[in-house]
Design a protein around this nucleic acid. Structure first.
Length: 379
RNA sequence: GGACAGGUGGCCGAGUGGUUUAAGGCGCACGCCUGGAAAGCGUGUGGGGGUGAAAGCCUCUCGCGGGUUCGAAUCCCGCCCUGUCCGCCA
């Protein structure tokens, strides 16, 4: 291919030279020669483009490779690496949907009426509680953990979805905006990680953390019938997301930091939780290693996943072409990206209702939330 | 949504079919000069791919994609983005 291109350039040069010296016959001959080379270039280029297209679409199908310290196997091979707090146990603890409806802060029926099952409406103190949680988390991460807060688009284009790994494999799981080629974000990770797509960053800027509030939209195709009650699995939910950009050398340590930042939310709220290292088979498509944070919800008697902290190593950076330069003159290298919820609002709200419920049906407000809510009890 | 104007290297900016390695400037880096600095002078200064031990060399890249042509930053078509004005709207 390159030889052909070089040959064309050479022949074009002789055409120019021949014309200038007034040698029309020679110019004509050279032009014919050039035409022939041009035809061969078209054929070769078409084949190259086709092959390259096939290769790219094939490569986009491959998931990230788990790190060596990730256990092999499926969900049953997950490992609880630590836990915090004492799960509340006892008879008569009510599930959050029961408490929420009784308190008048959760309106599942009317949410379903306007958008469908899985779209929840919070009311009154419920709505304020959700807002207080967002506020608490953003304040914590920006003031104490050093994150830069960003307010990002809630819809993204196709390139962004490819960059973080949702597309092409999981296009069915996203909400698409008809006729616009835009997609509602399943997590703020998508817009935040893509902020620096096709850029080369200065090493001095790394590591850098972003925190953002956003709603998240998920079709949950294939999950129909599972966890459908209350706030456990919904099509739209609010979340504070953490994303970190760093060098490859930093990423292992950065994952521990990120996880600790998300955990701080739960300790601040006084909610018992455990940290689960996911086995390879349970780790997400873009992730090389993931810790799930699960909070105890005594009303439903289950651990609820409220955060998934992952290092994507250079997987997303390669797709989104995000690089950095370690020093002037050095060739650019791919950064590593990490993300984790810090944390998801509905499930943590459910856990608060269930964990802090009183026998009389009221709910104590965790100390950390009182300044934000201006109340110490929901009744 | 409509009209117009634009998109060129880190930045500004010239370039409207070929002597092609994209002028010039700014910034930056290094060197010379200096007691030291500034100024001045000189050299260098994006990314991808290939080749090589390295220096280097080859090649692609002027918003993106197609087309015309022997040859495209330059001409044609489509799209994206930015600006200005109009319309609409929180």
């Amino acid at each position: 291919m390159e030889e052909l291109l070089a040959a064309r350039t050479a022949v074009s040069g002789t055409v120019a030279a021949a014309k200038q010296s007034g040698n029309d016959a020679k110019a004509q001959a050279r032009m014919a020669e050039g035409r022939e080379i041009g035809d061969r270039i078209k054929v070769a280029e078409a084949r190259r483009a086709e092959t390259e297209g096939e290769l790219t679409s094939l490569l986009l199908q491959f998931p990230n490779v788990p790190l060596p310290d990730v256990p092999t196997g499926g969900e049953s091979a997950n490992v609880v690496v630590r836990s915090w707090g004492t799960p509340r146990l006892g008879e008569g603890l009510r599930p959050h949907w029961d408490l929420g409806e009784t308190l008048g802060i959760l309106d599942l029926a009317r949410g379903a009426k306007v958008a469908g099952a899985g779209f929840v409406t919070l009311r009154g103190e419920g709505s304020r509680l959700a807002r207080a949680l967002v506020q608490l988390m953003l304040d914590l991460h920006t003031r104490e953990h050093g994150y830069e807060e960003v307010a990002i688009p809630f819809a993204v284009n196709r390139a962004a979805m490819i960059g973080t790994g949702q597309f092409p494999k999981f296009e069915d799981e996203q909400y698409a905006i008809r006729d616009a080629d835009l997609f509602l974000i399943p997590t703020a990770e998508v817009p935040i990680t893509n902020l620096y797509r096709d850029e080369i960053l200065d090493a001095a800027w790394l590591p850098h953390g972003f925190a953002a509030y956003s709603p998240c939209f998920r079709r949950e195709a294939g999950a129909a019938g599972k966890d459908t009650r209350g706030l456990l699995r919904v099509h739209q939910f609010d979340k504070v997301e953490l994303v970190r950009y760093c060098t490859p050398e930093e990423s292992a340590h950065e994952l521990e930091r990120l996880t600790a930042h998300a955990e701080a939310v739960l300790t601040r709220l006084g909610l018992p939780y455990r940290v689960v290292l996911l086995a390879a088979g349970d780790t997400g498509f873009a992730s090389a290693k993931t810790y799930d944070l699960e909070v105890w919800a005594p009303g439903v008697g289950r651990w609820l996943e409220v955060s998934s902290c992952s290092t994507c190593t250079d997987f997303q950076a390669r797709r989104a072409n995000i690089r950095y330069r370690s020093a002037p003159g050095k060739p650019p290298r791919f950064i590593h990206t990490l993300n984790g919820s810090g944390v998801a609002i509905p499930r943590v709200l459910a856990a608060i209702l269930e964990h802090y419920q009183e026998p009389d049906g009221t709910v104590r407000v965790p100390d950390a939330l009182r300044p934000y809510l201006g109340a110490d009890r929901l009744e």
